[in-house]
Simulated scan of single mutants.
Amino acid sequence: MSGQQFTRYERARVLGSRALQVSYGAPVLIDTDQTEPILVAAQEYDAGVLPFTVDRGDD
């Protein structure tokens, strides 16, 4: 997620996907006191540590 701008729909998709991963036991990538998966995902997104890319097909 280095320097890429996301639309609100892309952001929602990334956060939802990451929250699902966290809820199924994926390791959390940052130190946080949050326990809700969506809040953990949001903090990870804001920190820029998520390994997601969005392919828009804009050749």
Rank of each mutant, 00 (worst) to 15 (best):
M1L: 12
M1G: 13
S2H: 15
S2F: 09
S2N: 12
Q5W: 08
Q5N: 15
F6W: 13
T7Q: 04
T7A: 03
T7D: 10
T7K: 01
R8A: 12
R8D: 15
Y9N: 08
Y9E: 15
E10H: 03
R11Q: 12
R11A: 10
R11V: 02
A12Y: 12
V14E: 11
V14R: 01
L15W: 03
G16L: 14
G16Y: 11
G16P: 11
R18S: 08
R18C: 07
A19H: 02
A19V: 10
L20D: 10
L20F: 15
L20Q: 09
Q21V: 09
Q21S: 14
Q21E: 14
Q21F: 08
V22F: 13
V22M: 00
V22L: 05
S23K: 11
Y24K: 11
G25R: 03
G25E: 11
A26C: 13
A26D: 13
P27H: 04
P27I: 06
P27F: 01
P27S: 12
P27G: 06
V28R: 07
L29Q: 02
L29F: 01
L29G: 00
I30R: 00
D31R: 11
D31L: 06
T32S: 11
T32F: 00
T32A: 03
D33F: 03
D33T: 13
Q34V: 03
Q34F: 08
T35V: 05
P37T: 01
P37E: 12
I38R: 10
I38Q: 13
I38E: 14
L39I: 12
L39C: 12
A41D: 10
A41F: 07
A41S: 14
A42G: 09
A42H: 08
A42R: 08
Q43L: 09
Q43F: 02
E44W: 06
E44H: 04
Y45M: 13
Y45E: 00
Y45F: 13
Y45N: 01
D46R: 05
D46Y: 00
A47S: 11
G48D: 10
G48S: 07
V49M: 08
L50I: 10
L50A: 04
L50G: 11
P51R: 03
P51S: 09
T53N: 02
T53W: 00
V54K: 04
V54D: 14
V54G: 05
V54E: 06
V54S: 07
D55L: 13
G57T: 07
G57K: 07
G57M: 08
G57I: 07
G57S: 14
D58H: 15
D58S: 12
D58Q: 14
D59I: 05
D59G: 14
